[in-house]
Nucleic acid binder design. Structure first.
Lengths: 330, 330
DNA sequence: TTGAAAGCGATACCAA
DNA sequence: TTGGTATCGCTTTCAA
């Protein structure tokens, strides 16, 4: 029924061990022998069973990407960034996307890893900070890379985006454009990135000698609605801002909608900036400026670290993406 | 080193076969025995090796989702829709996302399937129409479900969205709103959905007795730029339309940007409609109306078909999503 | 440079 | 209800 290594060895007139050598591209195989075997393999349409290879060889030829409640763009970027390298390495990517609460999440992931015996793992928040999982992985000798780790940051290889720097650069950019009153919409309380982004904004103001006006700081919750609400408050100010920098793209979109409703032209009357957590670029009204979150790059770097066995801690910068007010989006 | 079935059997004082029975939830195991075995399993932290189960049992406990160049939203929807059912069935989802041209694609997928011996497969375009892959799957006895098949539609189980009906409903909706001059931006030539959507538009006009004006038909290419270009042409018409229906959301966004630049209010001065191929809903200016593409539903239905062994051909409808001109997006 | 035989860790048939 | 034992298809010593 299934074509197996024995069939190939018989047709090629060699032992199965030799076929195995060819499969695994080992040396010490005479070119002529290798050719015979390869001929037999293609003639028979042979493909080695991954299950058997995994069982016998102790390698699964699979790495895991563990994501909990991932956004579409995030997930897509991760997969896109990982795919190429995985293909090169002859390894499959198993996507484990969760929707559960964190408690059972850890146990489930533990089970998952024990069952599958992965050759490696890419962990995204919050599982990247789930210590028992890291313990298990280390115990099993499975290399892993953490994406944007929050606790025990020094532990293992990781890739992060420098959100403070990103917000700082965006703010400087706005100041360079001549803005002095820049409204800032803070992200959801309790998320580390919220504070990091606010910190970057404040840093830039200080560095550039622009005085801080507390009225220009508004609390938001990362979503469209709160972006609208915050923008309303900012634009109602006696001394309203000439630019609004939102800590997320949904909030930036909300701010944009408010500006539009008030008949303001963007960016002529009001500059709006945000973060490209989702593919805002291709959808939203041109004129908005964003810090592009390089999820795909992060994933690609993570793959590099994973396959090179490095345990570096990489920190990536975001790219500032400015779209003209008349040209279309990307 | 690894805890295996033998360790469990010894600790429980039974044979490995009995442990196997417990693992697989077979009957003919005395409750007391089962309890003993389960105690041993948890005490040892035993998790059966998937590789060994796959090899011995002929099942991989994995199903494949094959996508080529998937959009972020599409991929996310598919995974989200599949995940729950896979978890229930105790099966892992292997995501195979491509970026290659179609020729090698087929061969690669063939290799992929032969190596992995999946328990099932979900095929999206264009691989859903790649006949050799279907042949291979059938030969191997692997159940599969095709998403939006285009050729040999009768073959195997499948799930599709009725694009003709979606466009028809949207057009009727616009007519119901009082529009009589509805510009239509056609999608990329050569894509079946482009013709289907145009067909639905034409159907609705005919049914509602609205005369067709050829000037209101403009060719686009599914992207933002061509949406802008088409909208310019439409709005330059002596008798310009009161509504524009674009065959994709990127084109709708392009049309929206043109309307905005011309100082038109949406939807007061111009209604704009599109298709939610990407999560336009949460990002774009409110006022645009879209046909929501239920990717997640499609995937969930596909999972139903796959695991029930059915070979039905399901056709799903899109949902019309209208966002108020003042309220925020979802 | 090649091969024989012993696992890897489960499942499954056939007895008991 | 249980338990031997062959088996799945490959990798891996260890010889030759």
């Amino acid at each position: 029924m299934r074509v197996n290594i024995k069939d190939v060895s018989q047709r090629a007139g060699v032992s199965i061990k030799t076929v195995s050598r060819v499969i695994n591209n080992e040396k010490y195989v005479k070119p002529a022998t290798r050719a015979k075997v390869e001929e037999a393999m293609t003639a028979l349409g042979f493909q080695p069973s991954q299950a058997a290879r995994a069982l016998a060889g102790g390698r699964s030829f699979q790495i895991a990407l563990v994501c909990s409640n991932p956004g579409a763009y995030y997930l897509h970027g991760m997969i896109a960034g990982l795919r190429g390298r995985c293909a090169e390495e002859g390894v499959r990517l198993i996507v484990h996307a969760y929707q559960t609460d964190t408690d059972e999440l850890g146990a489930d992931v533990l089970t998952f890893f024990r069952q599958m015996g992965f050759d490696g793992a890419i962990l995204t928040p919050p599982i990247a900070d789930h210590l028992p999982v890291l313990d298990e992985l280390e115990r099993a000798g499975t290399p892993y890379v953490r994406i944007q780790p929050g606790t025990e940051v020094e532990r293992g290889a990781s890739v992060s985006i420098d959100n403070t720097e990103a917000a700082r650069r965006m703010t400087r950019h706005l100041i360079d454009l001549g803005h002095r009153r820049i409204g800032f919409i803070i992200g959801h309380k309790g998320f580390p990135v919220s504070e990091q982004r606010l910190g970057g904004y404040l840093d830039a103001l200080r560095e550039m000698g622009v005085p801080l006006d507390g009225n220009l700081l508004q609390q938001g919750w990362f979503d469209f609605q709160s972006g609208q609400a915050a923008a309303e408050l900012l634009l109602d100010l006696k001394q309203s801002p000439t630019a609004i920098f939102a800590s997320s793209d949904d909030m930036a979109a909300g701010a944009l909608s408010v500006a539009m409703q008030r008949g303001m032209r963007v960016p002529q009357d009001l500059s709006i900036a945000g973060f490209d957590d989702t593919p805002l670029a291709s959808l939203v009204w041109p004129g908005i400026t964003t810090m592009h979150q390089p999820f795909e790059d992060m994933a690609a770097k993570a793959a590099d670290l994973l396959f090179s066995g490095s345990d570096e801690r990489l920190v990536l910068a975001s790219d500032l993406v400015e779209r003209g007010s008349t040209s279309g989006a990307a």
